[in-house]
Design a protein around this nucleic acid. Structure first.
Lengths: 161, 161
DNA sequence: TCTAATTAATCAGACGTCTGATGATTTAAG
DNA sequence: CTTAAATCATCAGACGTCTGATTAATTAGA
């Protein structure tokens, strides 16, 4: 009997590695977002900033980073992009001259409002592959996973519980 | 009774959005990888290429992309990087002049071998937050999720089952 | 008070990722 | 055989992401 040098599946075990699967899941969720929000010319990251500003009111860059778990540098770049597109405005904070206070403009809030239903659609599409029980379990496990590592990241998430 | 304009948690619901949690999980898994493999100067993506070449033997860029689910352009850039570092070599395929056949060099395989235990450690660390049952469930759900969307991605994964 | 640690923002540099386009080659259809 | 479609590689351009450094401002400690 011949011993085949390469097994039928040379990549055995790949589909069990959490790192690999998470990367793939992220790739998928990004592409569904782009698909759904294509016409609006907005990315998931950018929407996150608009969304958090509409929910939390005025914030500085670090505030946004803490709520969304973005890196400080990343946040700075995204904010600059949104400011250039006049979707947000920056004003120096009179009480702390290191800071700039960010707010949504009318255009920014309009875009956020138009995007919101599409973003909900993204969620629906992503969750559609699961049964209700699976959906719940998936969210719970992801939540546990991310919370467990929160403190080890450069920007620990500021969240309840 | 006062109705407060902003709830205690203005970001309610964020931690249930799969897109958000997946992004965060990816961020975490990347940073654990870097932490663990820091000294070796290799990223998860680069390791993926070394790993797949050691498992599947010689491949062209598209072959790698299909096995790992990388974009063609991404693969091209990563391959170039590894080639510059002399971890892989490219040779024109005599049977198809559009292709280049990629192989690990000795240095590339050495690096892969040194990285492997650390990569296993990454996995252990990521999974350590779960009970065995949760671990299994998490992998299963991620697998179902990624498989379900496979065909909608630019590079559908070539995998068994 | 004066210094030291902390914090906000920014920048340079590197890598990953995708889109859309192009050129070269191979394969399939007439 | 010749043309059209598919395939591989590559490039330009854009955005996201992180690291490490710097500058400016605030806060805490001696």
């Amino acid at each position: 009997m011949k011993r085949s040098k390469k097994a039928a599946n040379p990549l055995e075990g790949l589909e069990e590695r959490p790192g690999f699967l998470i990367r793939r899941a992220h790739q998928i969720s990004q592409s569904v977002f782009i698909e759904e929000c294509g016409g609006l010319d907005i990315t998931a990251t950018q929407f996150g900033v608009l969304w958090v500003l509409s929910r939390a009111g005025a914030l500085d860059q670090i505030g946004i980073a803490r709520l969304l778990g973005f890196d400080r540098s990343t946040t700075g770049l995204v904010v600059k992009l949104l400011e250039d597109r006049k979707l947000i405005v920056r004003a120096p904070d009179p009480d702390d001259r290191r800071r700039y206070v960010l707010r949504l403009t009318k255009a920014g809030d309009d875009l956020r409002r138009r995007a919101e239903p599409r973003v909900n659609n993204v969620r629906k599409r992503l969750e559609a592959v699961f049964t209700p029980a699976e959906r719940k379990s998936f969210a719970k496990l992801l939540d546990k996973f991310t919370r467990s590592f929160d403190e080890t990241t450069r920007v620990p998430l500021k969240r309840p519980t």
